[in-house]
Amino acid sequence: MTSLPDLTAAFEDAGLIDVAYTIEPSPVGDLLVAVTPRGLLTLSYNNDLSPIAASISPRILYVPARTDSVRRQLEEYFARKRQSFDLDLDFRLARQGFGRRVLAATARIPYGQVSTYKGVATEAGSPRAFRAAGTALGANPLPVVVPCHRVLHADGGLGGYTGGVERKQTLLALEGVTG
């Protein structure tokens, strides 16, 4: 089998790569890493590109080199050599309004510490909307980087997680949070 000519450079030169992605192995399973010229668009546990095609652009291409800085920082985080991420974020897959403010509040929870659904709802301006805060975190397109795993129930219960509770436990344990 002859190898086909590589098209990535031609696509880059034409400025036509709206979304570049790769699949990155991690201690919490394979992560879909997708970036746009604006920044990191999503980290996803389910490897499904169709929501991106539908709401951002179908010009989606497998270009691991475009995701290098994200992959490096993720590797460092999972090796306990990094506590916060220094990345541009593209929030176009996130909800607007209250949901977006919940993510912003969540992004401020320091490494190795936890908050509650009520806590982030309060920070987002609606103390009683803790259920809506949970829903907003369940739709977080940027888990790990926007650390929704650090948000727990007020009674100490683990709460839910986009990628399943086991992943939440793994991430908390990695950060040294003991439940």
Binding site: L4, P5, L7, Y21, L49, S50, I52, A53, A54, S55, I56, S57, P58, R59, I60, L61, Y62, R92, L93
Partner: peptide, 26 residues
């Protein structure tokens, strides 16, 4: 956000087209 795709048309990611048809196009 970003309604650039016409309503009702679900285009697969372009990478899927490449993976499926690149060899035959060549």
């Amino acid at each position: 956000p970003g309604k650039r795709v016409p309503e009702g048309v679900e285009l697969p990611p372009f990478q899927t087209l490449l993976d499926t048809h690149a060899r035959d196009v060549h």
